[in-house]
Design a protein around this nucleic acid. Structure first.
Lengths: 352, 352
DNA sequence: CTGAAAGCGCTTACAG
DNA sequence: CTGAAAGCGCTTACAG
């Protein structure tokens, strides 16, 4: 039996019809507590221009006290701009893009934006579907990888008129925002390093064959043509997904066909690690008999035997910079740079 | 000059004040085209019960013809349920969680749900912040990793009353939904394998020291105590992030201190790969002098010299199953299983 | 610098 | 089985 009580039972709450309140603290509650109108409260909390200092403080205090959290759905509906940023990357299984994403999130989250991460699997059709689906969410901005997409995909990006930053590549186009580095120059630098080490039969082993791999290949070609050592037969390309196992397989196949090869430029570190492991298994001395290089400086490359020469690509910097630029664009700032080249770094280790 | 025309110039559109239309095709447009009310159109498109077959077809046809895409913000505001599912994982740098996520997305996206991916970095405070931020988005459901979180975090999950599925572990609790396997049993199985191979001084090398690593350790302890071979000095633990380089470092340190160790159970494959590479570097024969095992069967483990014995964890299956269960919960289905054990598989390779 | 009115595009509850 | 009214919680114009 409940303890006795002389107090009258609490009055039943007034029956309001058509009430659907979710019980959450709304802007109206904050406004009432602060003694201002909801519009003013809205402007104060968004730090919109034209609200008196004192009012801003009062509203913010009321919001804090009530534990007010703005409703993103209501905000998106009213303003036709959400706090979502759609971020499209080819794969999450490549550590490169994970590092990129983490950096993006580390800038966007504290600024109040959520990332909608889309994985395209290097498939133009998948990318279109994702773009279409994410556009329906009225994202505030867009981050996409590179410039290589279907025409429909490009049109979706352009016609949305959304702030958009392209990552991983550079571009000379004036109407585009991008952060990256010249994949072709980096490919050239790796090849030149091998040439300078005196290698004469330098092969290029590429998988996936996405736009950036082909740009690195272009740098390789340019360098070897200039050096008078280009041989198309040494371009060893496979469209399958890049992996350690595939690197090992391609290493063996290439050497079986071209035993005179004395250097291999693997287009990615996972392939390079696989090549190094295959050499170890076959008892082929690296770098004495054959030099091996990779690309991207992925985890484990420095632990290989011998450690893998590679190109360190500043993807964390790219992600942070892209997010910062996007923030600027979304806020309508005028001085956002168009084309940021963050460079790359050749890391020479024991394998070459 | 335009072609002559006797028709009067088109009347200027009526000037409506306060118009803010975004120009997008709305439910009202579809309803008008189909000759029904917006409510009926809404119900027809959502396949809500109680709409005549013929009307559903007519509405759907109109929607298709107009290219109607429902506005998620409006829908979320009106129904207080979005099409977002918040998915919290510790890291994206561990391939395990990437495979999990991909599987989740492959089920959720076709069903019309978007994932909000949150990375907690094994940090209870970060997890709370993410939870709080994502809850504001009124997600339709939640997928979280394991059961080990702060009390505030657990409370956020519970008090949200949102459909929630826990992944990677199993639980006997009746009020919880989870998909995973027994980390402790798997740890026990690895250790038993080493015991059966005749190893006597079996060390456990663990990093990160999250809940699941500790459960594997518990399985290791149980097995060795039963075998009468447990020695606490051979539990080699380090709170740093798991990596190939750390595995190599811990391998060397452990052997320097305990030269009589004849087997090492690394709690994750990246550590195990590092250990294997260190052994190679030091000229320590594996498995003759020392057996090495890992956990999770990550990329490259089968390419090591010798290939790494490990436990294959069905994370793709876990992700797909968790997403399917969540779909059931979000749709209010009654027969969703509570505790799904997908098992694991010991993969014996050359390193043991 | 502040606010009353209207609207964003849906769905919920209430009727019939 | 279908619909007219109201409401979800914000922000955008328009005034003053």
């Amino acid at each position: 039996m409940p303890s006795e009580s002389s107090a009258p039972p609490p009055a039943a709450p007034p029956v309001e019809k058509r009430r659907r309140s979710s019980g959450r603290v709304t802007l109206a509650d904050v406004a009432k507590a602060a003694g201002v109108s909801p519009i003013t409260a809205s402007r104060a909390l968004r730090r919109d221009r034209g609200v008196a200092e004192a009012l801003v403080a009062k509203v913010q205090a009321a919001a804090d006290a009530l534990g007010y959290v703005p409703d993103p759905a209501a905000r998106a509906l009213a303003s036709s701009r959400s706090t979502h940023v759609a971020v499209l990357v080819p794969l999450l299984t490549n550590r490169l893009f994970v590092d990129l994403l983490e950096a993006v999130q580390s800038v966007l989250l504290p600024a109040g934006y959520q990332s909608l991460i889309g994985v395209t699997h290097y498939d133009a059709h998948e990318e279109e579907l994702l773009l279409r689906s994410y556009m329906a969410h009225r994202p505030a901005g867009l981050i996409v990888t590179g410039f290589d997409r279907s025409e429909a995909g490009s049109r979706l990006v352009a016609s949305s008129r959304l702030p958009c930053v392209h990552v991983m590549e550079t571009s000379a186009q004036p109407d585009v925002f991008c952060v990256g580095f010249s994949q072709e120059d980096a490919g050239h630098a790796v090849t030149r390093h091998l040439v300078e080490r005196g290698r004469r039969r330098i092969a290029f082993v590429g998988a996936q064959l996405d736009a950036r791999v082909m740009q690195r290949l272009e740098g390789y070609r340019r360098c070897l043509r200039d050096a008078g050592r280009h041989d198309a037969a040494l371009e060893w390309l496979d469209p399958r997904r890049s992996s350690i196992a595939l690197g090992a397989e391609m290493f063996e196949a290439l050497l079986a066909r071209h035993p005179d090869v004395d250097a291999i430029f693997f287009c990615n570190d996972d392939l390079g690690q696989g090549g190094l492991l295959a050499a170890l298994r076959l008892g082929i001395p690296v770098p004495e008999r054959i030099a091996v290089t990779g690309f991207n400086d992925l985890e484990g490359s420095d632990q290989m035997l011998p450690p893998l020469t590679t190109v360190r690509t500043p993807r964390a910097q790219i992600g942070a910079q892209a997010a910062t630029m996007l923030l600027g664009l979304m806020r309508g700032e005028a001085d956002v740079p168009h084309n940021v080249d963050v460079g790359y770094e050749l890391v020479v280790r024991g394998s070459s």
